[in-house]
Design a protein around this nucleic acid. Structure first.
Lengths: 146, 146
DNA sequence: CAATTTTAGTTAGCCCGCTAATAATCTTTT
DNA sequence: AAAAGATTATTAGCGGGCTAACTAAAATTG
């Protein structure tokens, strides 16, 4: 048994390489990958609190907070306080944040098709199935998707 | 077609979660994941230059440089200049760097087995095969392993 | 051989994760 | 009602990726 032949090693190396690849392809949109993942979550349903978004993305609160600051500076999102709980904030998409969706989706699916040239259809489906299993292992929750 | 159903989205989220998981499990060894990946490369063959290690791990030169500084501070590695080329450095394992291997391997395979409880044997093999395909896509090279 | 180009390493600074520590605001308990 | 405990957001600081910019040393070209 060798390090290189473990799932753990391979997944980490490929994960890192994939993220770098993503960042490069997203570069022309002016956004970074973390911002896109947060936007995707907001397109699903905005008006949520930071703690809810952190849970949905399975990241720590400060990560959301920092990424949010970037999105606000880009004018895509607002961080509003609401009277029912003075601790929390509600995150809303601006018009600009809603409008950018189509463009990002197009870019996203272009990126996706680049990757898919490497895989057969059966491999793609298998990979998605396996990654979903691992996702629920790491996220520690049951599927929440619609 | 939705963001969440793309390989790209799933791979990134699982990759991030996996890295976080790894870091937590490696915490008790006193090392971080990037340091371990570099050590693994050096156990394979040390005495290489930074640029060679960067190529082997498919990361940028400054990443190797920074990670190396941490390993040197931990006394696991040395950065030696050699007379045949005054630009480059050669990276060697110290005794301590060699000695830590067994302990890290044990920890690594323990981590691996935690993940593998989620997958059937067929899934594990399939995942490794698919990730290897993606790896060679991202790394942009042919297999270099022994 | 001199001038240019390429290569190796480094530094600074950014994004995306994290933990630890604070402050402010609920909520619960007594 | 007062005290104690949880929860929310935030800040500071670190590792692991990156790019851009710089220095020094080869290597190549004219």
């Amino acid at each position: 048994m060798e390090f290189h032949s473990t799932v753990s090693h391979l997944l980490q190396r490929v994960g890192t390489a994939h993220k770098t690849f993503l960042e490069k392809r997203l570069n022309e949109t002016g956004l970074h990958s973390g911002q896109v993942f947060l936007l995707v979550e907001l397109w699903k349903r905005d008006g949520r609190r930071q703690v809810d978004l952190a849970a949905a993305l399975n990241v720590a609160a400060p990560t959301i907070n920092k990424t949010l600051t970037g999105l606000i500076e880009n004018g895509l999102v607002t961080r509003d306080r609401v009277e029912d709980d003075a601790r929390s904030t509600r995150i809303f998409l601006t018009e600009s944040g809603k409008a950018i969706r189509k463009r990002l989706e197009d870019q996203w699916f272009e990126i996706e098709s680049e990757i898919l040239t490497e895989l057969t259809d059966a491999e793609r489906l298998m990979l998605i199935e396996i990654l979903n299993k691992l996702k629920y292992f790491y996220y520690g929750t049951d599927p929440d998707d619609e």
